[in-house]
């Protein structure tokens, strides 16, 4: 990972087409401005991670995996405390 320290008002350039500017620093958060071609999506990292995970979740889930999970959920040793 390339580590760079910048102040508000300073910027980074990635390749020829992507620019990130530090617009404002306030307390523990940073306001960033990003200039990139429309063809390059920019997302908060956790949104990107969840988008990928959703793609995986939308794929085939084997009936065996479902049966294994149902067995696990019905196992007496896993009965929720609230049932007592």
């Amino acid at each position: 990972m390339l580590v760079i320290r910048r102040r508000a008002g300073e910027a980074l350039v990635i390749g020829d087409d992507i620019e990130i500017e530090i617009l404002e620093t306030a307390g523990s958060s940073v306001k960033l401005g990003i200039r990139a071609p429309k063809s390059i999506p920019v997302a908060r990292k956790e949104i990107h991670v969840v988008g990928r995970q959703n793609q995986a979740a939308a794929g085939t889930i084997s009936p065996l995996a479902v049966e294994n999970l149902l067995d696990q959920l019905k196992s007496p040793s896993l009965r929720p405390i609230s049932a007592l």
Binding site: V50, Q53, N54, A56, A57, G59, T60, I61, S62, L64, A65, V66, N68, L69
Partner: peptide, 13 residues
């Protein structure tokens, strides 16, 4: 949402 992990078992988001 549940998804299969590499080992085939399911994980929860």
């Amino acid at each position: 949402l549940l998804a299969p992990a590499e080992n085939g078992r399911l994980t929860a988001n």
